[in-house]
Amino acid sequence: MEFYMARRSLRHAVATTTSLVLIAAGVTVGLGASVAQAAPACALNQSVTDSWAGSLGTPYTVSKEVVGDGKVAAGQTVTYITKVSGSGALVNQIRDFHPAGFQLVKARLNVKWLIGDQKWDDVTKTVVVGNNSVVAKGGGWTTAGGGVIALETTYKVPDNAVVGTQLDSGAGTNIVLAAGDWNINPMGVCVTIRQPNPVEAGAGSLEDMGFGSLNSGSGQVFGSLTDPQGSMTNVISGVLGNVLGNMS
């Protein structure tokens, strides 16, 4: 597993007796100066706990999980939840690193402010979308009192994703402490591309015929059924036009 820790290298972390624990598939592995840590096997969730000189030896944890069974068809959506927790310091960034080609559909943030309760907020329009990453930024969310900062991200999988492929992802955060900027990418949190089920395959076939997307409910023809200005004649003409056009 390769860890990218901005302003804080793994060598420095080991030299300062940093404790790094990787929990993968229920197995805890300690990382020491003489241990070469291989990339973890793909799993539905992973968790990394670290303490360093800047945290005064107190631990902080970054975890990530795939919602559901981790299997998704090309063109469908998948959701991840990334969490940061620890020993009381503020967090001003939480990051999700997604597989190449994934397109953000929705992002929600659940944080603990110094004053107020935790709740989910839609942050789709305010997150920073970068190179295979989505970053939520804030003035500072506390980890005191068991506070957990959580970022939920939902993506559309590319239409050309290959069945059977396992796609890895990562996570990161910025803890407001010396050397608290921390990325773990890849992390071993994977989704597997599966065959589309009959409903998904059928929806794709209808879209190819020009009937619009069943997911959006705004197809070129079916949308006319809910248009008070439309007429059944226009609907029938539209259906025949689409069918005959695709037969030619």
Results as ranks from 00 to 15, higher is better:
1 M>R: 06
3 F>R: 07
4 Y>T: 14
6 A>W: 02
7 R>A: 06
8 R>N: 15
9 S>W: 04
12 H>W: 14
14 V>Q: 05
15 A>H: 03
19 S>M: 05
20 L>S: 07
20 L>I: 15
26 G>F: 12
29 V>I: 15
32 G>K: 13
39 A>T: 12
39 A>W: 04
40 P>L: 11
40 P>T: 08
41 A>M: 07
43 A>I: 03
43 A>L: 03
45 N>W: 09
50 D>N: 04
50 D>R: 10
50 D>P: 00
52 W>G: 00
53 A>T: 12
53 A>W: 09
54 G>L: 03
55 S>M: 03
63 S>M: 03
68 G>V: 05
76 Q>G: 01
78 V>D: 00
78 V>W: 00
78 V>Q: 02
79 T>N: 02
84 V>F: 01
85 S>E: 10
92 N>W: 07
95 R>I: 15
95 R>W: 13
96 D>V: 14
96 D>P: 00
97 F>N: 01
97 F>T: 07
99 P>A: 11
105 V>T: 11
106 K>D: 08
109 L>T: 11
109 L>I: 14
110 N>V: 06
112 K>W: 11
118 Q>A: 15
119 K>W: 06
123 V>A: 09
123 V>W: 03
124 T>N: 04
124 T>V: 04
125 K>H: 05
125 K>N: 14
126 T>A: 07
126 T>H: 02
132 N>G: 05
133 S>H: 01
137 K>L: 07
138 G>N: 13
140 G>D: 09
142 T>C: 12
142 T>Y: 08
143 T>S: 10
143 T>A: 06
146 G>T: 12
147 G>M: 13
147 G>D: 12
148 V>H: 04
148 V>P: 01
149 I>N: 04
153 T>P: 01
153 T>N: 10
155 Y>C: 11
157 V>H: 01
158 P>F: 06
160 N>E: 13
161 A>I: 10
162 V>R: 12
176 V>W: 05
177 L>G: 05
178 A>Y: 14
180 G>D: 06
182 W>L: 15
183 N>Y: 15
183 N>S: 15
186 P>I: 14
186 P>L: 14
187 M>K: 06
188 G>K: 03
189 V>Y: 01
192 T>H: 07
200 E>W: 04
202 G>S: 14
212 G>R: 09
217 G>V: 08
219 G>V: 06
226 T>P: 00
226 T>A: 10
232 M>W: 09
232 M>S: 09
233 T>S: 10
233 T>K: 06
234 N>K: 08
237 S>T: 10
238 G>L: 02
241 G>I: 05
241 G>M: 03
242 N>H: 08
242 N>C: 03
244 L>T: 10
245 G>V: 05
247 M>I: 09
248 S>W: 02
